[in-house]
């Protein structure tokens, strides 16, 4: 009998899932628009548009790098978590001097842009990014959403 009750008492614990999270696999078509005549590799980050709650609620939390060979259409497939975050926003900049740095000291012309992918959450989304703001970080381009 003791074995019976032992198994009975332990049964609710066995088979527990440690964590359960929700994700969406989204294919984003990005149109990168550069100032006329400029063409160079583009780098940046995918951001959660919002994250956190209360005093910790904050825009633009980067979670994945972005890279493209140059302006034009780029298709990216991302696995995006949905728990505790909202929205999908791309920040990117053009590496005109090829140094891998966005506007290293003394450089003043590498353009950047910010755009929100819509609709989201969804399995397909689009974003248009105009790279027209030299040397600004994502935070400087954020206008409140």
């Amino acid at each position: 009998m003791s074995r019976f009750f032992l198994l009975l008492s332990l049964s609710p614990l066995v088979g527990c899932v440690n964590s359960r999270t929700q994700w969406v696999e989204v294919t984003v078509t990005t149109e990168l628009i550069a100032p006329e005549g400029l063409s160079a590799p583009v780098y940046g980050e995918w951001n959660h548009t919002w994250s956190g709650e209360g005093e910790l609620r904050v825009p633009l939390l980067p979670f994945e790098d972005f890279a493209a060979e140059g302006p034009g259409l780029v298709t990216t497939t991302l696995l995006v978590p949905l728990d505790g975050v909202e929205g999908l926003t791309l920040y990117a900049w053009m590496d005109l001097d090829g140094d891998g740095l966005h506007c290293a000291p003394g450089v003043t012309d590498e353009p950047a842009g910010l755009g929100e992918a819509l609709p989201f959450p969804a399995t397909e989304a689009d974003v248009t990014l105009s790279l027209d703001a030299p040397c600004l970080g994502a935070e400087a381009l954020w206008d409140g959403g």
């Binding site: 527990c16 899932v17 359960r20 999270t21």
Partner: peptide, 11 residues
């Protein structure tokens, strides 16, 4: 034994 479950919406 830690089991982590990801529920993923795909196309």
């Amino acid at each position: 034994l830690l089991t982590d479950v990801q529920e993923i919406q795909t196309a």
